[in-house]
Amino acid sequence: MRVTTTGGTSATSAADQFSYIAAPAITAISPSSGPASGGTSVTITGTGFTGATAVKFGATSATGITVVSATSITATAPAGSGTVDVTVTTPGGTSATSAADQFSYVAAPAITAISPSSGPASGGTSVTITGTGFTG
């Protein structure tokens, strides 16, 4: 950085250098889904994570944030719903959103019926369970 006044221009030195810090970028998250109640430990992979000050799932702050390296962070997902973008904030800015940073909240399964509702104590009865949210 140089300063110019009516008396001239300052000399440059190591003491007057300014560095631009790039914003972080997320390239992957794992796992990419978890329960709506939160609590999932998520590994975030990308670049520029040094000095990270926040991780958000949508508008909600994560907890348990650990900057593992300039390319890896672990964080605990808060409670939520739907699909949200995960962002990382550092002194260089906040990561842009993309398909690589999306986290999907999965509703808990719900049982609506079982058939048959009873069987012998010795076991072996085939039971059909009906409900929602059984995928995975």
Rank of each mutant, 00 (worst) to 15 (best):
V127I: 15
Y20T: 06
V68P: 09
A113P: 03
I26W: 09
A23R: 10
S30A: 13
A121D: 10
Y105E: 00
S126Q: 09
V88L: 14
V67G: 08
A70H: 03
A108Q: 07
V68S: 12
G82L: 11
A22N: 02
T9Y: 13
G48L: 01
T50W: 01
T47P: 13
S126L: 14
S115M: 05
D85N: 14
A25Y: 02
F49M: 08
F49A: 02
V68M: 15
A99T: 11
F134H: 06
G92H: 10
G80M: 13
F18Q: 05
I44S: 06
A113I: 02
I111F: 09
G92N: 07
V42G: 04
G8A: 04
T50D: 02
S37V: 14
G39F: 14
T87S: 10
T128W: 06
T128N: 08
A14S: 09
T97I: 03
S118F: 01
I21R: 08
P116M: 01
A77S: 15
T27L: 04
T6A: 08
G46Q: 07
G131L: 03
M1R: 11
T53V: 03
Y20F: 07
G123F: 00
G48C: 05
S95E: 06
T53P: 03
P35A: 15
A22V: 00
G48I: 00
S69C: 14
V106S: 04
P31M: 12
D101S: 10
I44C: 09
T53S: 04
T90K: 14
T60Y: 07
I26F: 05
Y20I: 02
S118W: 08
G7H: 06
A99D: 04
G136C: 14
G123L: 00
D101N: 15
G82Y: 12
